[in-house]
Write a protein that binds this DNA or RNA. Structure first.
Length: 425
RNA sequence: GGAGAGAUGGCUGAGUGGUCAAAAGCGCUCGCCUCGAAAGCGAGUGGGCGGGCAACCGCCCCGUGAGUUCGAAUCUCACUCUCUCCGCCA
């Protein structure tokens, strides 16, 4: 959410941002009109309330001395009715203001390239070489089923499409990757581990920006105000909702494993095979709360932390900078890490690292006190996957497959796999 | 699920219809004292919104939302959360 005062006094900046994102500006115009209307009502109703307060004071004084105050009281009855009417009008305008404001996306950082969609994202760098196979490489869904470590058919029986069962060493591999990633980020990158609830309330979803705009993308528990987390970003960022953090504690860095649940409403027919697009997947997420003047440095470090997972696993990847049309609703700047996926013959997103500046902090009311006694300010929040486990497994199966269909296990992962060097039949 | 207690500022905690943004204490900031520090003493110290060039002025906020009243932290109702006891349970 943007600051209403900022929008009012910099409407041209906001308008330009919407145009750069390829969005309409009707909501902005409606917002500016509602804001003006609100201030008109406010001036009138506040004047009436001032009169009422003065009269109340007078009544109190008169009553204390035992004098009669009925004349003032009768007069104020009319004023109070008037106030009630204005207050109702005001509440209606304020409701529409907050709805409109919640629907306006963040302003992209100046370093974000202007572009219409993902085709105009900018590649920043590459690491590693896609392997030249001396045999016909198989897709991970074929490899996994052949090794009996993935079972999509039974998963669709017990639940439905876009679910998977990991079995045997496949299941072990999930556990190994989660543990490896958590160990790496806590021990080497200074993150504090968190294990949060997998269900969150609507206020949390609003806080990080999933609601109200993206209600169709997630699963809601029927009859309850609970949503299944689409990413650990939601519970972890909202841990500090409504709080003022001690400036001396910043940056606060958390790493969390959760299962993630996404409805994938707009993705019918896409990535229907394999582990790439599932309704349920596992992810280790990095979340930071930082001082505003450090947030872009922190974003670069966050990307480096995520990259190191791919490098240790020996998976070739590239980093792309999202353009204004693909940066996402809440982010001011976003990098994607894309891993080489032989079955796709291209790089596939495996991590998304964003700086939200104060957009989420304002929605979730997360502040910090820069120094003892100083005025509290909004923190900047960042997050990134470190990494998505399902896609990591897909990448490992495909990139580390051997001619006989077995999978070589990366050195750093072997201790987590009970010393296993390869998954074979 | 049943019974009861509670929710007040950065924290502890008083306030049960009329100058209450709210006592007191702690914490914090500044000053005095000191070679320096601690202690002590003094002053200050919540947030949001609006008007004004500014000094400043006004409105709102005591878990959330409705209501009663000329007037609500205080009374009524609903909800949420926390704690205690009972039941159930991985």
């Amino acid at each position: 959410m943007l600051d209403l005062k900022f929008v009012r006094s910099n409407s041209d900046v906001v308008r330009d941002s919407l145009i750069r994102r390829g969005e309409g500006t009707d909501a902005l115009d409606a917002l500016l009109a509602a804001d003006e209307k609100r201030r008109e009502i406010l001036v009138e109703v506040e004047e009436l309330k001032r009169r009422r307060n003065q009269a109340s004071e007078k009544v109190a004084r008169l009553k204390r001395t035992g004098a009669d105050a009925s004349e003032i009281i009768d007069e104020m009855k009319g004023v109070s009715d008037h106030i009630r009417g204005f207050d109702e009008e005001l509440a209606a305008v304020e409701t529409s203001i907050s709805e409109l404001l919640l629907g306006i996306p963040n302003i992209p950082h100046e370093s974000v390239p202007t572009g219409r969609d993902d085709s105009e994202n900018v590649e920043v760098r590459r690491w590693g070489q896609p392997r030249a196979f001396e045999f016909e490489p198989k897709a991970h869904w074929d490899l996994g089923v052949a090794l009996d470590i993935l079972d999509f058919e039974r998963a669709s029986k017990i639940t439905g499409a876009r679910f998977a069962i990991y079995k045997g060493m496949g299941s072990r591999l999930v556990r190994a990757l989660v543990n490896f990633m958590l160990d790496l980020h806590t021990a080497e990158h200074g993150y504090t581990e968190v294990f949060p609830p997998f269900l969150v309330n609507a206020a949390s979803m609003v806080g990080t920006g999933q609601l109200p705009k993206f209600a169709d993308d997630m699963f809601k528990c029927e009859g309850l105000d609970y949503y299944m987390v689409p990413t650990a970003e939601v519970p972890v960022t909202n841990m500090y909702r409504g709080e003022i953090l001690d400036g001396a504690c910043l940056p606060v860095k958390h790493v969390a494993y959760t299962a993630c649940f996404r409805a994938e409403a707009g993705a019918a027919g896409r990535d229907t095979r394999g582990l790439i697009r599932q309704h349920q997947f596992d992810k280790v997420e990095l979340v930071k709360f930082v001082r505003p003047d450090t947030s872009y440095d922190e974003l670069e470090r966050l990307v480096a932390d995520a990259q190191s997972v791919l490098e240790i696993l020996g998976l070739p990847y590239r980093v792309t900078k999202m353009c204004t049309g693909d940066v996402g609703f809440s982010a001011a700047k976003k990098y994607d890490l894309e891993v080489w996926m032989p079955s796709y013959g291209r790089y596939v997103e495996i991590s998304s690292c964003s700086n939200f500046e104060s957009f989420q902090a304002r929605r979730a009311d997360i502040k910090f006190r820069p120094a003892p006694g100083a005025k509290a300010e909004f923190v900047h929040t960042l997050n990134g996957s470190g990494l998505a486990v399902g896609r990591t497994i897909a990448a490992l199966l495909e990139n580390c497959q051997q001619p006989d269909g077995s999978i070589a296990i990366a050195k750093r992962l072997q201790p987590y796999m009970g010393g296993l060097e390869a998954i074979a039949i």
